[in-house]
Design a protein around this nucleic acid. Sequence first.
DNA 1: GGTTCGTTACTTTTT
DNA 2: GTAACGAACC
Length: 814
Amino acid sequence: MDFLSGLNPPQQEAVRHVEGPLLILAGAGSGKTRVVTHRISNLICNHRVQPESILAVTFTNKAAGEMRARIGSLLGSLMPPGRGPRLATFHSFCVQLLRRDGSALAEWRPNLTRQFLIYDDDDQLAVIKGLYKQHSIDDKVLPARQALSAISAAKSGRDGASGLAKYDHTPLGKYVAALYEQYNEALIAANALDFDDLLLETARLLRSHEPTRRAWNDRLQFLMVDEYQDTNRTQYELVRMLSGNRNNVCVVGDEDQSIYSWRGADIRNILDFERDFPNAKVIRLEQNYRSTKNILEAASSVIANNTERKGKWLWTDSGSGPKITVYQAMDAENEALVIADQIEKGLRKNPGWRVAVLYRTNSQSRQIEEALRRYRRAYNIVGGLSFYQRAEIKDVMAYLKVIFVPSDPVSLLRIINTPARGIGKTTTDHIEQHAREHKITLWKAMGEMLEYRMLPGRAEVALRAFRHLIEELQAKAGDVPLQVLVSEILERTGYLRMLKEDRDPSAETRIENLNELLNAAAEAHARGDNAANFLDHAALVSDADGVDENSQVSLLTVHNAKGLEFPLVFLAGMEEGLFPHNRSKDSAAMMEEERRLCYVGMTRAEKELHISHAQTRRRWGGGPEEAAMRSRFIAEIPKELCDFQGLPPADAISGEMDQLGAEGEVDLFSERGYVRETVKWTQQRAKTPYPGKTYNSVENIAQFFKDRGLPPPGVPRSSAPAPAKAPPMPPAPRPPQAPVPIRPPVAQPPQPFSKPPVKRKSGGEGSTVNHPKYGRGTVVRKEGDGEDAKLTVMFPGHGLKKLIAKYAGIKIDE
DNA sequence: GGTTCGTTACTTTTT
DNA sequence: GTAACGAACC
């Protein structure tokens, strides 16, 4: 079978390459995913390579899934059913390997069993804070977060623990080294691995345990690594050891897109590849298939200011396309409104386009979200606080961990008094002290103290009841499906009751999140996952996994946009101090990374790129408006490629002024008042008065619309399982009068959402169902069939609910 | 022991 | 604008 057609010569060369090391320097948009998938297919189909003996490492789980799907469709029936290449991120591959062979590590890491827990960021922080408490270290002297990042840098960096030496001469020095030791000891004692450990311990296992290494070298014949420029030292070692003597290793990367040096990524891995793997073949992919000429030239001009690069100049066959608009807003609010306005205009012209708003910091999303909500435009936000990071979800997951691994101190302390059950600080302090003194786990200490009646009466009763509760759940755990266990946790621990009795409006959203968790557990069970897989999954999902292609508008950081493309891209907040970020101003190397980040952002755009910045911006809510200068990166774009718009820039070159308003149809010269007029009109049309209160947290979005008896505008947070697309809206009457534009031309307000096509079918989309709690609702979307079908149902007064037919106990009306 | 309220610091980027 | 913490109350 031919996997070469439609590819350019260097792409073909890469696909044809079989044995030996290969470095593919793939510029932005040069079709590298295509090359990788075609190459894997070629190996399987034409070179009789067993699919399982290929390991391809991607940057996100989502990228792995997409690659799997593409290879599947390339090979079709040629792929033996139920088989396929191994596709994973470094972290998830390491978890698989350690869950399988990790016991051998106990020789070097006492206590380690294959049932280890994965400690995420929160867990790590809890460990540090526990140590602080133990040693009475003041968090103000050395913020726990800072200690953690120092420890992580020491673990994953090139210098190892000696990297801590730089703290020696600081007031914190005496703590850091000790903390590093004790932190690691705590994890070892808890049979837990943090993200760094997953890589480090896998490397140690392969390095030190020959049978394991040999087995994996036999198992894996071909290795591929995507985004190689963002691998760290440990990942490099893993690549070396996994490739064995064969050196059938193919790495794909672009030094201009290296944006993770701050978490240990080492650009030398790609720069030195030819030295590390002698006889490596190098292939450059320099034809860009993604962007217009203008966008590509602008991005290339920016990145050309970096010195630390191999140097290349991408080219494209495509037309020049429109100029890049550079909009100067009065303030951040205006910037957000103008972006929302431009999204409406853009989507009216090109209804099928997917749109991304990219920014440097997550906190910038708030104002953009608010602007989009004013326009009633559904959006998908990636990152920020993800589903599995929410307190209520973490609480329930902590119960699961305690049930299966009662020795885990972090989880135990998290839930021992959540909901409040009379086990207070004094009691837990006692238990912790007892555990430390006798060098036993908290769980054991708890047992001993109960056995020997070492606690005051009230505390003892409470603690005994808690222990009993956990033991009962443990007894059940093995026998029931995961979702039943989760539901038992919610009921028996009183967690659900606690939320139901909570008058705080956010409690309701949290209950909804827990329902989502139940759904997720049911799905996991249906897939054949057990509790351990479920916990692994929760720890390893990444923000970028939450990108939803079905969503028309996505909000995300530039970091999360890596590897993605959108016809219409907004790059917001291009100001000195923000992008490039203030913290990167100290060193030239960090500034170059900011520039690479800017390059990544710009090259996401296929058709149109809109850059914006504000003259003033508040650093935080209550603070003052602070003057902001536009980013140096804007100045690095050739002026003839730009269309300068918005307020006359204070720092503008006079020639730019001529451009203002000259472009005719699309005019971005919207003062705040003008955009407000547009918004007002929009709201009249949609009959959704905007009360002036800011609904700035995700929880509040649902509330906002619920209060008004309206369906929510769309997907709230990406990481939560996504509800269906925008639900039907009541038809809006025409406004009495269009606003008098302060300046020409008028922005057309967005159209109200049209009703999705209704299929009349029993239990299908459009049919009515009856739910025991929510009453009658309309099925908006249906996935799957029979009793396993997943229904997204609109319940008037309760909003959108995603249900699994079998568990929800709903009746379908005919 | 639990809850409420006021103060504080906070914003890079994330597997 | 808000999350996290601690003091002061119940």
